[in-house]
Design a protein around this nucleic acid. Structure first.
Length: 466
RNA sequence: GGCGCGGUAGCCAAGUGGUAAGGCAGAGGUCUGCAAAACCUUUAUUCACCGGUUCGACUCCGGUCCGCGCCUCCA
């Protein structure tokens, strides 16, 4: 079965190929930079990273745009509280976001775009919507009239036909003609920053930036649009309403939504004290790869229950695969090539690929990797894994890591160089030979204290950093 | 109330008409000067519950219970 994704729009899993050529045009709703991103955000961005990597593994080129929302109510409020400009305030968190992406090994999209750098484009789009009769002005702000867009609700599968245009649904919404209408351009209030434009002085609503930046860089119809489930409504619904009202063409072919992450089965919130950023977890001593593995290992459409037990388990799981690789790199094997094993390697890779083709079933793809590792380990112990089989096994691990990217340790815990470690091991071997176990054990303990773990095997000493 | 997601071993989790992948933890073993590390083996007569369809259901249908998300800019 070919590559396929679950499409929120059709509520079905559908075969995927790009619309135009070999390039996948995709858009991701990025962060609002009013704070450090939390691990819930990072779950979604990790999904998007796995998606990128798998599309490329399947031979596609990428043109991927992610936005940075750098103007918004909380930003304005927080910036004002700190007596900073919007730019000064958001710069800190934008930079932090890039750092977090690097730490988690999230690939940079081909283009990262900021809302504040596209104000003119947004104004033009709103004017176009006005020309087509989709807007109205109320108290200086420009609103989108959803009653004029027939397909409204098709993404979130809500039926809004019962909402009558012009009805005053809620007294609190006195400035809107219809409860679901949303703001395209917000008129400036006292003391707020604003842009002077033909629409008046103010700032853009949230939804318009994504429509505008997506179409500016990717064309009128995108292949894929991703985001968290919570964005399905109203954000993505509104993006469709805006974009399709302007172009008259389908805005997005495949809508992919990542489920939420909870913390110990509870919603993450500051009041519960279970609000974690990547920096928090690293500060507790967890490795970035562990976080990445945990976030990637649960298929993206399934709720992910984040626990520290799970985070520790992730670290151990990675270790298992690293050990397997270490073995492939160091074991002395008999010459030759075991054809049966070649076949099983091929089958394992196939299982791995097919799992990811199936709407990025990462859990199943991991199972294929672990099963193969066990099979190969057993074969090695039995002397059936020959030197000619190493390349195939390493090839599988490379493929695995081109997607999961967890095998290479992030940072060296030890300040010792490889040569220094080798020298100490030689010293210990000499001590062992002389049956000076006190000295041998001291060297072993010294190395352990610096994060170097020795493995005494039949073939001699093997070591790794931990 | 509407829309959506889910309930599989101690924990995480795949599967989805043919009799339960994988990881962690636990238990046992191999190796070892000791130890560690590593590796191997092992752990659900059972898939929230009740009916139904079927030769056969965790998987399909109907119903019930429970958890969660969205429905005013939260990934």
């Amino acid at each position: 079965m070919a590559l396929r994704f679950y499409n929120t729009l059709t509520q079905q899993t559908e075969p995927f190929t790009p619309l135009l050529d070999n390039t996948v045009r995709m858009y991701t709703c990025g962060p609002t930079v009013y704070h450090y991103v939390h691990i819930g955000n990072l779950r979604t961005f990790t999904f998007q990273d796995i998606l990128r990597r798998w599309l490329r593994a399947r031979g596609y080129q990428l043109n991927h745009v992610m936005n940075i929302t750098d103007v918004e109510d909380k930003i304005i409020r927080n910036a004002a509280a700190e007596h900073k400009s919007i730019e000064e305030y958001t710069e800190v968190y934008t930079k932090a976001f890039y750092e977090d992406m690097d730490t988690l090994r999230l690939e940079r999209p081909e283009r990262l775009v900021k809302a504040t750098e596209h104000i003119a484009d947004m104004v033009a789009a709103i004017q176009k919507l006005g020309e087509r009769g989709f807007t109205y002005v109320s108290e200086g702000s420009v609103y989108y009239r959803i009653a004029n867009f027939p397909g409204y609700g098709k993404l979130s599968h809500n039926d809004f036909s019962g909402i009558r245009a012009g009805a005053r649904v809620d007294v609190d919404e006195y400035d809107k003609a219809d409860a679901r209408d949303f703001v395209l351009w917000k008129a400036r209030k006292d003391g707020e920053p604003g842009w002077e434009t033909p629409l008046g002085t103010g700032r853009p609503g949230w939804h318009i930036e994504c429509s505008v930046m997506a179409m500016k860089y990717l064309g009128e119809t995108l292949d894929i649009h991703t985001g968290g489930v919570d964005l399905t409504f109203p954000h993505h619904e509104n993006e469709i309403a805006q974009s399709e009202a302007i172009t008259g063409k389908p805005f997005v072919r495949f809508w992919l939504h990542a489920e939420h992450l909870s913390i110990e089965a509870q919603k993450m919130s500051k009041s519960l004290g279970n609000f974690y950023t990547l920096r928090d977890l690293l500060g507790m001593g967890y490795a970035p790869e562990s976080v990445r593995y945990l976030l990637a290992s649960v298929p993206y459409r399934k709720k992910l229950n984040f626990t520290f037990e799970g985070l520790k388990a992730a670290a151990t799981s990675i270790e298992r695969l690293r050990n397997f690789k270490l073995r492939l790199d160091t074991d002395k094997l008999a010459a030759g090539k075991n054809e049966k094993l070649v076949e099983r390697t091929r089958a394992a890779i196939k299982a791995f690929d097919e799992a990811l083709d199936d709407d990025l079933n990462t859990a199943a793809s991991l199972a294929a990797a672990f099963e193969y590792a066990r099979d190969a380990n057993t074969a090695t112990d039995a002397g059936e894994f020959l030197s000619g089989n190493t390349a195939g096994a390493l090839h599988f691990l490379e493929r695995f890591d081109s997607v999961f990217d967890v095998l290479k340790p992030s940072a060296r815990v030890s300040g010792l160089s490889d040569a220094e470690v080798d020298a100490m091991i030689a010293e210990r071997n000499a001590a062992k030979k002389a049956r000076d176990f006190v000295r041998a054990d001291r060297i072993r303990a010294d190395l352990a204290a610096q994060g170097i773990v020795l493995e005494d095997t039949k073939e001699g000493v093997r070591w790794k950093r931990q």
